[in-house]
C-alpha cells in the first residue's frame, strides 16, 4: 500500500463538468470538485441537491439504477496514477472494490455476520479461503466491532443493533482495503452515542484512507471536516475556507446563508 499513500492535501479526486440525469431529469449539472487526499472531506447541502448522486458518481454506482445518464469526467488517483473512472476499458467492479462505500442506512447482506465479511473477499478479491478470517478480523477490529461479534459470527447480521450493523458495513468495506471510502450520511440512522462512536472511528480512518463524507448535520460536519464543500442547487460546489471551519460562529453564519 505504501506507494499509494499520499501526502495530505494533494488532490486525489478531480471532477469536471459532471452531468448526471435520471430518466431525463437532471440531478447534477456541470459539477466541478477537487478532493484532496486524507480528509475527511465533508459535502454538505440541502436535501435534493444531489449529494448522494455526486458521491455515487465517484464509484459509478449510479449506473446500477435505472435510467441513469452520466456525462463529464471523474478522475481518481488510483494506485498512484490518475485514472478516468468512466473510461471504457475500466472495470466498474474493480473500481468499486478500491473505492469503498457505506450507505445512509446499514445494509448488511441477509447472511451471517461472518459471511458478510468474507463474501466480498471471496468474490470480489478472489482471495484464498485461508486469508479470509485474518482480513475479516483485522477489519472488524479497525471498526471497533471485533469484541462484540467474535462469538457470534454465525448469527444473522440482522440480529445486530443499528450502530453495530453500520460498523459491520464499515468493516466490510475496510476488509477490501480500499484507497477511498465514500460515506453517505453514515450516522443518519444511529442514535447520538452510536453516531459519536462512528465519527471517532472515521477520524481515525482518515489517517489511512481518503474519506469523502456526505452529511446533513452541521455539528457533525464541524466535528469531522478537515475540508468542507457546499453543494448548491444546480450543481455549483463551493469550498468553505479553512479558517471558517475553525470558527464556530463564522461557520454558523456561513451555513445559514448557504443552506
Amino acid at each position: 500500500m505504501s506507494e499509494t499513500m499520499k501526502t495530505d492535501g494533494d488532490p486525489v479526486i478531480e471532477i469536471t463538468d459532471l452531468h448526471v440525469a435520471f430518466d431525463g431529469r437532471a440531478v447534477l449539472r456541470g459539477v466541478r470538485l477537487t478532493v484532496a487526499a486524507g480528509g475527511p472531506t465533508v459535502l454538505v447541502g440541502r436535501s435534493g441537491t444531489g449529494k448522494t448522486t455526486l458521491l455515487r458518481a465517484m464509484n459509478r454506482l449510479n449506473e446500477c439504477l435505472p435510467g441513469c445518464a452520466t456525462r463529464g469526467s471523474v478522475r481518481l488517483r488510483l494506485g498512484g496514477e490518475w485514472r478516468d473512472v468512466y473510461a471504457p476499458g475500466l472495470r466498474p467492479e474493480e473500481l468499486r472494490r478500491r473505492v469503498g462505500m457505506v450507505f445512509q442506512s446499514p445494509n448488511p447482506l441477509p447472511v451471517s455476520i461472518g459471511r458478510n465479511m468474507t463474501m466480498p473477499l471471496e468474490l470480489a478479491l478472489r482471495l484464498p479461503a485461508a486469508e479470509w478470517s485474518g482480513r475479516a478480523e483485522q477489519a472488524l477490529r479497525e471498526a471497533g466491532l471485533w469484541d462484540e461479534v467474535r462469538d457470534r459470527l454465525n448469527q444473522p447480521a440482522a440480529a445486530l443493533s443499528g450502530g453495530q450493523q453500520q460498523r459491520l458495513c464499515l468493516a466490510r468495506a475496510l476488509a477490501c482495503r480500499p484507497e477511498f471510502l465514500l460515506l453517505d450520511e453514515p450516522t443518519a440512522s444511529l442514535d447520538y452515542k452510536a453516531a459519536r462512536g462512528v465519527e471517532d472511528l472515521l477520524l481515525e480512518l482518515a489517517e489511512k484512507y481518503t474519506l469523502v463524507v456526505v452529511s446533513h448535520s452541521l455539528n457533525q460536519a464541524r466535528r469531522l471536516a478537515r475540508r468542507m464543500h457546499v453543494l448548491r442547487e444546480g450543481g455549483q460546489v463551493e469550498a468553505v475556507e479553512p479558517e471558517a471551519l475553525a470558527d464556530k460562529d463564522r461557520l454558523l453564519a456561513f451555513m445559514d446563508e448557504l443552506m
Binding site: P92, A124, L125, A173, C176
Partner: peptide, 22 residues
Amino acid sequence: PRELRLACAALGLSRWQTVSRV
C-alpha cells in the same frame, strides 16, 4: 430491494456474482 443490489455493487461484486451469490 434495490439497496441489496447497490450494496453488492458497492462491494465490487460483479453482476453475475450479485445474482448468483446473493
